[in-house]
Design a protein around this nucleic acid. Structure first.
Lengths: 386, 386
DNA sequence: CCTATTGCTTCCGTAGCAAAATAAAAAATG
DNA sequence: CATTTTTTATTTTGCTACGGAAGCAATAGG
C-alpha cells in the first residue's frame, strides 16, 4: 500500500483538483464532480481513470447510502482510500507536545502527548522523535509529519522566530527529518489550523472565510479562494493593537482595551485577579460568571461585547461568508452568547446579511491535527504553495 | 469606425483578457503580455492577430518612447485604439445630473451638467436624453451610456430602491434605452466608481483592494481578484452602524459615534452648527480647523481619528494591498493627516506592513466617469458579470 | 562577420469542452 | 405485464485553445 502510494505524486493539475475535491467532500459521483469543478463530464472520466487505476480512488457501492430513489442511471460514487496512508501532526506548546496520527481524511486515529522538560531545539526534537517512534510501532509506514507552533516559519521548514520558545532561525524541519527519516512540514500553528478548517472543516468549499482564535493569544486569518492571505503580522501575535474599547482595562499584555487585553485567557484571569485578589482558572471564572458572581460577570460581559464587536468588524470589512471562532478561549461563547450577539447587532447594519458565525472549541489535539493536514497537503498532493 | 467596432463584440475569453490588459495597462509588447497574462508567446501571437485585423489593437512605433537601449530584437508594442468609441457616463444627485463623455481608456473628453427640477423618473430620463443628444451632436456614434446613482440596482438596469430619489423598482435602463436608442448600464454609484478605479485607477492590477468613500454618506467596497464583493448592504448606506467611538457625537444620521456621524459632510456640518450656532460649509469648516479655530478643530480632529481607526480596521481585517479614500469629503486628509496617521498607528501592529493608503478627491464628474467605465466593461468587452 | 540576446512566429502534442452515443434505471403507456 | 419514453450517468468522439520547442527576425557587442 505504501509503495503504491508513491505513484500518486505526479498528479496533473486536473487530477489534483479531482483528488482534493473527493478528499475534502466525501464520496462524489463523476457527474457531481463535473458540476463542482466546472469540468465537462468527459474530462472527469478522463481524469478519474488513472486515479482509479493507481488505487487512489475507488468506486464505492452506494446502495444503502443513497436513500432517495431517483430516476435515471444511478450514479457511481468515487471515494478516496483514506486508510492508505497515515500522517503525524504535532503541536508544540510551552510545556507539552501534543501528537496525533490521522488518515488521509484527517480523522484522528491515535493521540500521544508528552511533557517538555526544556525548550532547547535538541530536547524538543528528541521528544518528537520518541513520539514518532511510538506512533510508527502502532502504524508502520507513516507518510510524513506536520509540526505547528506559535511563531513565524518560512519554507514550511525553518522557524524564523518563536517568542515562547525563544527560538531564532531554527531549521526544525531538517532536524526532525534527520532524526526520523520522514518528510516534515513546519508551520505557524494558526496557519495550520486554518488550512485544516479550510479543507476539512468549517471553511470547506467557501471562497472567503475568516478564522479568529482565542487562547493564550489572539489569532486571525483570512482565507480567500482557498488560500490564506499572508501578512507581516503572522506569528508575531494579532490583536495587541486592535483597540476595541479605548476605555477598556489595562493589562500586562496588549494596549489598553485591546482585543488581547479583553479576550485572551491570561488577561481575563489577570483582570479577575486584579479585581478580586483570587487566582482563578479560566473555567472557574466562566462558571462563576454564569452563576452571576458580579466581578467575573463584569469581566466576561466586557469580553463578550468586545468579541461581538470584533466579529462585526470582521464581517463589515472583510465580508467573509463565514467566521470561525476557535481556540481554548471560546468557552466564553457558551456563557455569554446574548451579549456577543447584542454587540454584533449594534455594530452591523440591520439589512446586512446575518453573520455566519461558527464556534469550535479546540483542544490542543485539534491544533496537532491542523499540522497533520498541512503534511497531507504538502506531501501527498504536492504543489500547495506556502 | 463605428461599424467596424461592432465586429469587436464576440471576443473569446483569451482575446478579452488581452484586450483588457492592453486597455488598462497602456501599450504592451506581445512578450510583456505573455508574462502578465501567464500565456505562452505563441498564444499571444494567435490572440492578438484577429484583434489587430479587426482594428481594436494597433502596433505602435515605440522608437522615442523606449529610451532604454536593450539588446535583442526590439519589441513591438500594441496599443488599443482608444479614440475609436465614445461612452457617456452620468451621475445623478439630488439636484444635478453630471455627465461626461470618455474614450475607451476612460479619458474624459467632454463634461456637461444640468440642474434637476424634479426627481420623477420621467423628468430625469428627459434630462438624460437632452444631455445625450447634446453629446451626440459633438461626438456622433456614441457607443453606450452608464448611469450611477446612490441606491440599489440589479441586472445593471433596474433601480430597486433609491432613498434620495424616493424610487422603487424603476426600470431606468430600459427607459433611457427607449429614449436614446443607445445601450444603457445602470449601477450603484460607489460600485461604478470602484470599477473605474479597479480598471484604470488606484486598484489597477491589484488582487485585494478596498475603497472607502466619504461624502454625503459613507461608501465601502472590497475588490478581490478584480471583482467587487457584493453584499446585502450595498446601496443602503454603509457606516451607520460602524461604531468607531461609543462616546462620540450623536447626530441626526447614524448611531452615536458611528462612522456616518463622525465623518460625513452633513454630520460634520451639523456638529459644528450644534456647537457654534454657525451654519458653515464643509470647506469653511476645514479652513477654520486648519487655522486652529477651536470648535471646528475639535470636530475635524475627532473625524480624523475616526478615519484613521477605520482605515486601520480595514487593513487589519480585510488585508487589502491598497486602500483608496475617495469622495467629496476627503479634504479632511489635507487638513488632518497627522491625526489620521496617528490613529492608524495606534490601531495596528508596529510590525504589520504599513497601510498603503491613497487619497483621491473626487468631484461628481469622477463619479460620472465611473459610470462610463461600467458601460465600457459591459458593452464593449462584454461578459463582465454583475 | 560572428555570437549572444531578445521578440515574435510556426508547428505539434495535449487537455479541455461540446455533442453524440451508450448505459441504466424509473415512469408512463398500451 | 411488456414496451416505450423519460431521465440521469457515463463514455466516446471530434474540435479548439493552450503550452512547449524549434525556428526566424532584429538588434547589440565583440
Amino acid at each position: 500500500m505504501t509503495t503504491l502510494a508513491a505513484s500518486w505524486l505526479p498528479l496533473s493539475p486536473g487530477e489534483r483538483a479531482v483528488a482534493i475535491e473527493v478528499l475534502t467532500h466525501g464520496p462524489l459521483s463523476r457527474s457531481e464532480l463535473a458540476r463542482r469543478l466546472d469540468l465537462s463530464a468527459g474530462s472527469v472520466t478522463r481524469l478519474t481513470k488513472p486515479l482509479i487505476e493507481s488505487g487512489l480512488l475507488v468506486e464505492v457501492a452506494d446502495g444503502a447510502t443513497l436513500a432517495e430513489v431517483r430516476q435515471g442511471r444511478p450514479s457511481q460514487p468515487l471515494d478516496i482510500v483514506a486508510e492508505s496512508r497515515r500522517f503525524v501532526g504535532f503541536k508544540i506548546t510551552q510545556d507539552m507536545v501534543y501528537g496525533v496520527v490521522t488518515t488521509l481524511r484527517s480523522d484522528i486515529v491515535a493521540r500521544r502527548d508528552r511533557p517538555l522538560a526544556g525548550l532547547d531545539p535538541d530536547e524538543i526534537v528528541d521528544v518528537l522523535r520518541e513520539l514518532t517512534d511510538e506512533f510508527e510501532r502502532d502504524f508502520p509506514g507513516l507518510a510524513g509529519i506536520g509540526i505547528g507552533l506559535g511563531g513565524r516559519a518560512h519554507d514550511r521548514s525553518v522557524v524564523d522566530e518563536s517568542a515562547f520558545l525563544d527560538w531564532h532561525d531554527v531549521p526544525l524541519g531538517r532536524l526532525v527529518e534527520e532524526r526520523t527519516g520522514l518528510p516534515v512540514v513546519v508551520e505557524n500553528d494558526v496557519a495550520a489550523l486554518v488550512e485544516a478548517e479550510s479543507w476539512f472543516g468549517a471553511g470547506r468549499g467557501l471562497d472567503r472565510f475568516a478564522v479568529l482564535t482565542i487562547g493564550a493569544g489572539i489569532g486571525y486569518a483570512l482565507v480567500i479562494g482557498g488560500k490564506r492571505v499572508a501578512t507581516a503580522e503572522d506569528g508575531v501575535g494579532y490583536g495587541r493593537f486592535w483597540i476595541v474599547n479605548p476605555n477598556g482595562p489595562l493589562t500586562p499584555d496588549g494596549q489598553r482595551g485591546s482585543a488581547v487585553s479583553l479576550l485572551t485567557i491570561p488577561n481575563i484571569r489577570y483582570q479577575v485577579q486584579a479585581a478580586t485578589g483570587q487566582d482563578l482558572s479560566y473555567e472557574e471564572i466562566l462558571t462563576l460568571a454564569a452563576a452571576g458572581d458580579p466581578m467575573p460577570s463584569r469581566v466576561i460581559d466586557e469580553a463578550a461585547r468586545a468579541l461581538g464587536t470584533l466579529v462585526a468588524q470582521i464581517a463589515n470589512f472583510a465580508m467573509p461568508q463565514k467566521i470561525l471562532l476557535a481556540g481554548e478561549g471560546v468557552g466564553l461563547v457558551d456563557v455569554a452568547a446574548p451579549a456577543i450577539e447584542e454587540a454584533i447587532r449594534a455594530n452591523r447594519h440591520p439589512r446586512a446579511e446575518p453573520v455566519n458565525l461558527e464556534t469550535k472549541v479546540s483542544d490542543f489535539h485539534d491544533w496537532a491535527r491542523g499540522a497533520a493536514v498541512l503534511a497531507i497537503q504538502v506531501l501527498v498532493l504536492g504543489g500547495v504553495e506556502a
